[in-house]
Computed example of a mutant assay.
Amino acid sequence: MGRRLRAPRIDLAALVAEDNPQIDLKVDAFDKANRDFLKALGEYKIRYMTAMAEKREQAEAEKKRLAERTRAAEAETNQCKLKEIELLAELEREQEEKRKAEMAITSVKRQVETLRKKAAEDETEVENVRAMAENLQREKEKERTVLEARAASVLPYLEACQQTLACIIEGLDGSIDGEPILVRFWEIQPSDPGREFTFILDVTSTPYRVPISNPPLPTLPILLDELNKTLDIYAFIMSMRQAFVDLVSSRT
C-alpha cells in the first residue's frame, strides 16, 4: 500500500500577515500520487478482469464438464432402459419357451402313456398270435406227419405208375409250382428202352417255351404254338412223347 500523504498544517494568521500570501498545495506530489493511484487502479482492473476471465473459463469448463456428465448419465440411463427392455423381452421369451416346453413335456407324457398302453395291448396280441402260431405249428406238424405217412404209403404206387408210363415230371428245384419243368421219357427207342428223352418246359412266363430238348425235335415250334394257344400242358407232354417216338421211327 502506498504511503498516505497528509495535508500540512497552515497557520492562517501568519499567512494573512504576509504581503503576498501563498499556500503550497504540493501539486507535483499530488500528480505523482494520482498517477500512482491510476496505475494501481489499472493494474487492479487488469488483475480483476484476468481473474474474472479465468473464473469464466473455469465456469465454462465446469459447465461443459457437467453437461458432458449429464449427457453421459442420460446415455447410460438410456442404455439401462434399453437393456431393461431387452431383459424384459428375454424374460418373456424364456417364459414362453418354458410354457412351450411344459406343453411339449405334457404331450410327450401323454404319448408315452398311450404308447405304454398300446405296448401292453400289442404284447397281449403278440401272446395271442404266438399261441395261435404254436397251435398252427402243432396242426402243421400233425398234417405233415399224416402227409408223410400217406406219401410213404403212396410212393410205391407212384413209382409203379412212373415205370408203367415210362415218364417222370419234376421241377428243376424239386417243385413244379411256378418253376421250369423237367420231363423225362424212356422206352421210346425199341433198341434201347432205357435211353432217356428229355426236355425242359419253362412255364414261368408266357409264351411258354422249351429251352432244352434232348434230342432236338424238328416239330417243336409247331407243338409250342399249339401249347401257347391251348395252354394244355399235359396234352403238350403227350405230344412231345409222340414226337420223340416219331423221330426215332423216322431214323430206323
Rank of each mutant, 00 (worst) to 15 (best):
Q22E: 06
K63W: 12
V16T: 11
R47F: 06
E57Y: 08
E54I: 01
F30H: 14
V27A: 09
A33T: 01
D11Q: 05
M49D: 13
T50N: 10
K55L: 05
R35H: 10
K39S: 10
V16C: 13
K55W: 02
A40M: 07
T70Y: 13
R65T: 02
R47P: 00
G42L: 10
K63M: 06
R69D: 09
A53Y: 10
A61F: 05
V27T: 11
E43L: 13
A67G: 14
E60G: 05
D19F: 08
K64Y: 05
R35W: 02
D36T: 06
A51K: 13
A17V: 01
K26F: 12
E68Q: 11
E43W: 09
Q22A: 07
A53T: 09
T50A: 14
A61L: 03
I23G: 07
M49E: 15
Y44G: 04
D31T: 09
A51R: 12
F37G: 13
D24H: 15
A59I: 01
Q58I: 03
V16W: 15
A59S: 11
L12R: 14
Y48I: 03
A29W: 01
Y44W: 14
Q58C: 05
K63G: 07
K64P: 00
A40F: 06
Q22D: 08
M52G: 08
Y48E: 03
K55H: 07
L66E: 13
A29V: 01
K32C: 01
R69F: 06
E18T: 02
L12C: 13
T70R: 15
